[in-house]
């Protein structure tokens, strides 16, 4: 069995690092929770790992905006090594606040770290306030949307919890969406349970099915290579049957559906 090394990168305010590391370990990876400040001391250490995971939480309190300060750290002193990491045949996963940080650092949607210099091309997309204006914790139903993302292999649909205030994906203009679609970057969409539409991204959905008003019902996006995934829902919160909100009402397998994402990542190195 492959045992890739996973860097679960935590910043001040990260709070899902333990369970995320646990998820990778359940699948046979060797996961280390590593503090951003330690990495800043020796950025080259990042290259010791095969998988970079930025877990959920409230990095720097989400002051200024969700993931913004964490992203500025990635864009500043880690830009070089992060670029090198992303260029090689490795995987990168951002969950919730980690997704927000990756998107605001430019790692998503295109795998290129955004520069902090003046007169840069503006960001093509952002994660911002939920349409209901509130932090919202609830379970959602998700469908994969035809991307070739490594983490989502073999998954068609699954239930996962969301817990965020700024999870609505907004794009600068409609061409961004068509590019994403063209490059297979739609990864996960919020969906009605039991829906059979060919394309979950083109259905009109409102709250609670699409819990934050995200464009094209997007819950997660991929880079064009399929090696980077950012998603708002928390796969590390559905590792066991008893985490599902309806586990007392239905027969569920012992293993939670979220585990498959981590297993796929580990299997990639097999």
């Amino acid at each position: 069995m492959p045992t890739p090394r996973v860097a679960v990168l935590r910043a001040p305010g990260t709070n899902c690092d333990h369970e995320t590391a646990h998820a990778f370990e359940l699948c046979g990876a060797q996961a280390e929770r590593i503090h951003l400040f330690r990495l800043l001391e020796q950025p080259q250490r990042l290259l010791d790992y095969q998988i970079l995971c930025v877990p959920g939480g409230f990095s720097y309190g989400d002051d200024i905006g969700s993931g913004v300060i964490f992203a500025s750290q990635l864009r500043n002193r880690l830009a070089g090594v992060l670029g090198e990491f992303l260029q090689s045949d490795k995987l990168c996963l951002g969950i919730c606040n980690g997704f927000q940080a990756l998107l605001k650092a430019g790692v998503l949607p295109n795998g290129q770290v955004a520069s902090l210099e003046a007169n840069q091309p503006p960001a093509s997309a952002t994660l911002t306030w939920n349409h209901n204006g509130k932090y919202t914790a609830r379970w959602v139903h998700l469908r994969t949307a035809g991307s070739q993302n490594v983490f989502l292999r073999g998954i068609e649909s699954l239930d996962l919890p969301i817990a965020h205030a700024e999870g609505r994906i907004v794009v600068r203009d409609p061409s961004v969406l068509s590019q994403w679609k063209q490059h297979g970057q739609f990864a996960l969409c919020y969906s009605k349970r039991g829906a059979t539409d060919a394309d979950p991204s083109s259905v009109e959905l409102s709250f609670p099915e699409n819990p934050n008003g995200s464009i094209a019902n997007l819950a997660g996006i991929s880079d064009p290579t399929g090696r980077i995934l950012g998603l708002m829902p928390h796969p590390e919160r559905f590792l066991f049957r008893t985490q599902h909100p309806n586990w007392t009402r239905m027969d569920l397998p012992e293993e939670g559906a979220g585990l498959q994402l981590f297993r796929n990542a580990v299997a990639y190195f097999g």
């Binding site: 509130k134 919202t136 914790a137 919890p161 009402r249």
Partner: peptide, 21 residues
């Protein structure tokens, strides 16, 4: 719903339960 009741991945019986949670 404004409170995260699932972080740390230990949730078994949630504050809201039932068919529609």
């Amino acid at each position: 719903r404004q409170y995260d009741h699932e972080v740390q991945a230990g949730s078994v019986v949630k504050p809201l339960v039932g068919a529609s949670s």
